[in-house]
Nucleic acid binder design. Structure first.
Length: 283
DNA sequence: CCGTCCTCCTGCCCGC
DNA sequence: TGCGGGCAGGAGGACG
């Protein structure tokens, strides 16, 4: 799925066609995704003007002038595509509806926003604007990794005494919100930390080093438009290109990119998910 | 409270 | 060409 950089890229793509624009028509083509859609979602969206688009962790939040906020999560396979506008590289014509196009928003001015999600692990919801901190999907989230609240002292304190592998800890959205499998693997490689190492048994200095590394990895990925594997695209249909920069993710068997290191990238499975790492550089 | 495992769902790729 | 198995960017929920 889209992790934080991919979601941020999608949000930036949606900004010019959504913010300040009115939803002329909302078409909801099934009852729900991971959970049922909120009551009368199509009617509540229709006619609303988007006041702003925010991102919290991997959630896109659209504040509407109806005192409601629309929450979107893309799950593993969710995509958002824009068509019908002359802005940038967007498609001029609306393409035919495809399988798994679940929600279609036609904006005043002609832009169409289509939410496609084959696996349907995604989420769409509406809640009263300003109550986001109470929303069950948002309330327990940890700090944004690019924000000031996420800092060396915080992470050291948060991981102290934790028996869980550092890989799992960094995937835990209550500790830091927005990281996923790709960027945790990449950050641990850059920090030289083995993914199976118990979080609570890593020196404070090494934990501290993770903070700027995580920020760098995410910032570089956002600058690259995210990572395109399989089906992720930016909202204008363009591919992201951070995947060409992966040092370990999906690189099993490839030579380690550290100069002089002769090792091959290894893969282990931790709580059902692949971890890629260099057995020599990561300890 | 903690850590681990299972599950939701579809599609794709690989080996036989 | 078909089929079975494994794997996929997430994360809530059950369980011990």
């Amino acid at each position: 799925m889209p992790e934080l950089p991919e979601v941020e890229t999608v949000r930036r793509g949606l900004e010019p066609v959504m913010t300040g624009h009115r939803i002329a028509r909302a078409e909801v083509r099934r009852e729900g995704l991971r959970w049922p859609f909120p009551e009368r979602m199509a009617e509540r969206l229709t006619g609303a003007t988007v006041l702003g688009l925010r991102r919290r962790s991997k959630y896109i939040l659209a504040d509407l002038d109806t005192n409601e906020t629309c929450l979107i999560h893309l799950g593993m396979s969710g995509r958002i595509l824009i068509s019908g506008t002359t802005l940038g590289k967007f498609h001029h014509e609306h393409p035919a509806t495809e399988k798994h196009d679940h929600v279609v928003l036609d904006m005043d001015g002609g832009a169409r926003i289509t939410l496609n999600d084959a696996r349907r692990f995604g989420v769409m919801d509406l809640f009263t604007t300003g109550t986001g901190d109470l929303h069950p999907l948002i309330a327990a989230l940890g700090p944004e990794p690019l924000g000031n609240e996420f800092n060396e002292g915080y992470l050291i304190a948060k991981l102290a005494g934790k028996n869980t592998p550092i890989k799992s800890a960094l995937l835990d959205q209550r500790i830091v919100a927005g990281l996923g499998n790709i960027y945790v693997c990449e950050a641990l490689y850059r920090a030289g930390i083995h993914p199976a190492r118990k979080a609570g048994r890593i020196s404070a200095a090494r934990i501290a080093s993770l903070v700027p590394i995580i920020r760098d990895v995410l910032a570089e990925a956002i600058a690259a438009g995210g990572s395109s594997l399989r089906d992720y695209r930016q909202a204008d249909g363009e591919l992201g290109y951070f995947q060409h920069t992966f040092r370990v993710y999906d690189q099993e068997g490839q030579p380690c990119k550290t100069p002089e290191c002769q090792a091959k990238i290894a893969r282990i499975v931790q709580s059902g998910r692949s971890s890629f790492y260099c057995p020599t550089c990561q300890r």
